[in-house]
Computed example of a mutant assay.
Amino acid sequence: MIYTMKKECLKKHFLKEPSKYEKNLVEDLTSNVFHEWNDKLEILTRICDYYSYTFRFYSDGRLVLQMVNAKTKDDDSRWRGKDDCGHLEYFSIDAMLIDWLDELKKNEGSYKFEEEIKFIEKLQEDIKKVVDYDILKELEDIRIRMYNTNFDQDRIILSDAIDLIKDSEKYRTGMKVIYESYEEDDDYEGADESDDILCQNCRTLVARMDDYEGMRPAYCPECGTKLIY
């Protein structure tokens, strides 16, 4: 995906591309939700530019869109159930992109959103494959209530299902990596550049402290767990 809006954003803030200040700009625009420009941000800014919206992130990942000057017809402007101010709030950028999918598909303007539609449809398919975490909580509660009852065999089957869901969940939400220090001093605090970074799930060495951020893998090459640094 060519980041045309990234270039415009840098230009708007009087920065050249590439810029050493790009990371700071992205973190400022997204309240540290993102640290570098990516496909989701590119599509978000394309939508906001075309439909005249501004956006604001919260540190917990929530995203708010505010209409500036609607380009759609009056009878089309309520397709998302927005209020009179055109204020839209989403719990994540993923939810926002999926919510706009139908609007992008029916767009009859000069700009065709083929690339954006294809990306969002893929995102939607990936999300559908993931079991909702609320279901996992419900299964845990049911298993607890089954303890010391006549449904012991069912409880065992349920336990296997829960373990399977937990196992798949780590690939979506991720697990924090382990920073393993070679310093033997008990009073030592911090990390040395030669220290290892391990996958918490299988303890595979995935990176070193002195590796650049772009060099660190997003997923463990051994077990596939999403890595949170």
Rank of each mutant, 00 (worst) to 15 (best):
Arg145Cys: 03
Glu184Gln: 10
Glu22Trp: 12
Glu114Ala: 14
Glu115Phe: 15
Asn24Cys: 04
Glu180Trp: 05
Leu41Ser: 09
Tyr3Gly: 01
Ser19Gln: 08
Arg56Thr: 12
Glu116Ser: 07
Gly224Arg: 12
Leu44Phe: 03
Glu222Lys: 13
Lys12Gln: 09
Gly109Gln: 02
Tyr111His: 14
Asp154Cys: 04
Val68Trp: 11
Ser194Gly: 13
His35Ile: 02
Met5Gly: 01
Asp196Ser: 15
Lys40Asp: 15
Ser92Leu: 00
Ser52Tyr: 15
Ala70Val: 00
Glu189Gln: 15
Arg56Phe: 08
Leu29Ala: 06
Glu17Asp: 15
Leu65Trp: 06
Glu189Thr: 14
Thr30Cys: 03
Cys48Leu: 07
Asp163Lys: 13
Asp60Met: 00
Gln200Trp: 01
Asp163Trp: 11
Ser31Ile: 00
Tyr58Asn: 10
Leu136Val: 12
Cys199His: 08
Ile43Trp: 14
Asp152Ala: 12
Arg208Ile: 15
Ser168Asp: 14
Gly190Tyr: 06
Leu158Thr: 00
Lys170Phe: 07
Asp185His: 03
Ser181Trp: 08
Ser59Tyr: 10
Ile2Pro: 09
Ser77His: 07
Cys220Pro: 12
Arg155Gln: 09
Lys11Met: 02
Glu213Ser: 13
Phe55Met: 01
Asn32Thr: 04
Ser194Val: 14
Tyr90Ala: 02
Tyr133Gly: 02
Val130Pro: 06
Phe113Lys: 00
Asp134Pro: 03
Ile228Tyr: 06
Glu116Tyr: 14
Ala207Ser: 12
Leu104Phe: 04
Tyr53His: 03
Lys11Ser: 06
Tyr188Val: 03
Glu138Ser: 12
Leu29Ser: 08
Ser168Gln: 14
Lys105His: 08
Cys85Gly: 08
Gly109Arg: 01
Leu136Glu: 11
Cys202Ile: 11
Leu136Trp: 08
Glu116Ile: 08
Lys82Gly: 12
Leu25Asp: 10
Leu123Cys: 09
Ser92Glu: 03
Glu183Ala: 09
Gly224Lys: 09
Cys48Asn: 10
Ile120Glu: 11
Leu10Ile: 01
Asn32His: 15
Glu183Asp: 14
Asp210Cys: 02
Ile144Ala: 14
Glu114Leu: 13
Glu89Val: 00
Leu123Gln: 05
Tyr171Phe: 15
